[in-house]
């Protein structure tokens, strides 16, 4: 399977639905063979971006290029893009095999060649034995595998995945997720993946772009995104974050939960006395049993980790994650002392 990876570029793409700006001056470059995920809540514009690239949505300003070629005048059926939809996209009147062959059939490929190619692809997605079944006879996960095989059969220059896992059960979801990544790497196809599930995005992507109200807030590798979020929205959307009121003590220092933290690393340029919000990852907080002070209210076992909710006298609980072994020592109702390490604390202007 020799699909070469293409370069995909968005240049200042804007799309409006009436007065609503679904996509605002969106620019992005995807390198050959890269898997980029657009992550965000529903209505953030991620699917719009994908549909514009596919050519299904044509009412936009700005330019989309594939391998440096402007796509404006090229209709969806000439773009050579493989797309996997959320669900229900298999043609119900055809078998799995016929579905995979469809793109080749409309291109006039002879039946021997397209049957051979379809068999190869069904093999690749692990469904060779189900080729004669219709979509109604396949499980949700199998249907999405066939849809993937169908999208790849036309040797597309780009693969688009529009929440392909969201209609599946949790177990099938993570299995198919890893398999999509494996196949994508094997073929080396440039891929744009759209999802609202941050865990999914982090697990499969080379880079993740977090979208918020039509804007691309930040695009980075998964680890960068988690450790160095650029905006509070990104911090909040990627992983669990405590949002705690804080007061600036100097240009680089804040007072949070009776602790003064030096956060010069983030270059916050604060004004003394300013009221701000501190964003603190659960793992940046450590706790110690104490005679009095904050109270442990909730304790949820998450497998290797245990999440502990602490009442520190604020409106919301503060969440801390400990290894389950450490957490054994602490029970609900215990008093604890809370310590925050400054290196992964971010501050926003309330």
């Amino acid at each position: 399977m020799d699909i070469h990876g293409s370069t995909v570029e968005f240049h200042g793409v804007t799309r409006k639905f009436g007065n609503v700006v679904a996509l605002n001056d969106f620019s992005l470059k995807i390198k050959p063979g890269e898997l980029v995920t657009l992550l965000g809540p529903s209505g953030c514009g991620k699917t719009t971006a994908l549909r514009i690239l596919a050519g299904i949505d044509k009412e936009h300003s700005g330019v989309v290029e594939i391998d440096g070629k402007d796509m404006s005048s090229i209709p969806a059926n000439k773009r050579n893009i493989g797309m996997v939809f959320q669900a229900y996209s298999l043609f119900p009147n055809m078998t799995a095999q016929e579905n995979v062959e469809y793109g080749l059939r409309v291109r006039g490929v002879d039946s021997v060649a397209r049957s051979k190619r379809a068999s190869e692809l069904l093999e690749l997605v692990g469904l060779a034995s189900q080729s004669a079944r219709r979509s109604t006879q396949l499980s949700g996960g199998q249907q999405q595998r066939v849809a993937l095989a169908r999208a790849l059969a036309i040797e597309p220059s780009v693969l688009l995945l529009d929440e392909p896992l969201s209609a599946l059960d949790a177990q099938v979801r993570s299995q198919l997720r890893d398999e999509i990544r494996r196949i994508q790497k094997t073929i080396g196809i440039t891929t744009l993946f759209v999802t609202h599930d941050q865990e999914e995005a982090m697990a499969v992507s080379d880079r993740v772009g977090v979208m918020n109200k039509g804007n691309l807030d930040q695009i980075d590798s998964p680890s960068h995104l988690y450790n160095k979020p650029k905006t509070p929205f990104v911090a909040g959307f990627v992983g669990l974050t405590n949002v705690v009121p804080a007061v600036a003590q100097s240009k680089n220092e804040v007072l949070v939960l009776d602790q003064v933290l030096d956060i010069s690393e983030h270059a916050p340029s604060l004004v003394k006395g300013e009221e701000v919000k501190a964003l603190i990852r659960p793992e940046a907080i450590s706790i110690e049993k104490a005679a009095k002070g904050a109270v442990v209210i909730t304790k949820s076992f998450l497998g290797p980790m245990t999440r502990i909710g602490i009442d520190v006298g604020l409106h919301d609980l503060i969440y801390v994650e400990l290894t389950s072994k450490e957490a054994k020592k602490i029970d609900t109702g215990d008093h604890v002392e809370v310590t925050i390490s400054s290196d992964s604390v971010m501050v926003t202007h309330a």
């Binding site: 299904i56 969806a76 493989g82 959320q86 996209s89 999208a151």
Partner: peptide, 19 residues
């Protein structure tokens, strides 16, 4: 989705109707 799948797979309107 069928119509859009047809489009991205390179099918024309007529192919969509016919197949």
């Amino acid at each position: 989705e069928w119509q859009e799948a047809n489009e991205t797979l390179g099918g024309s309107r007529i192919a969509y109707l016919r197949f």
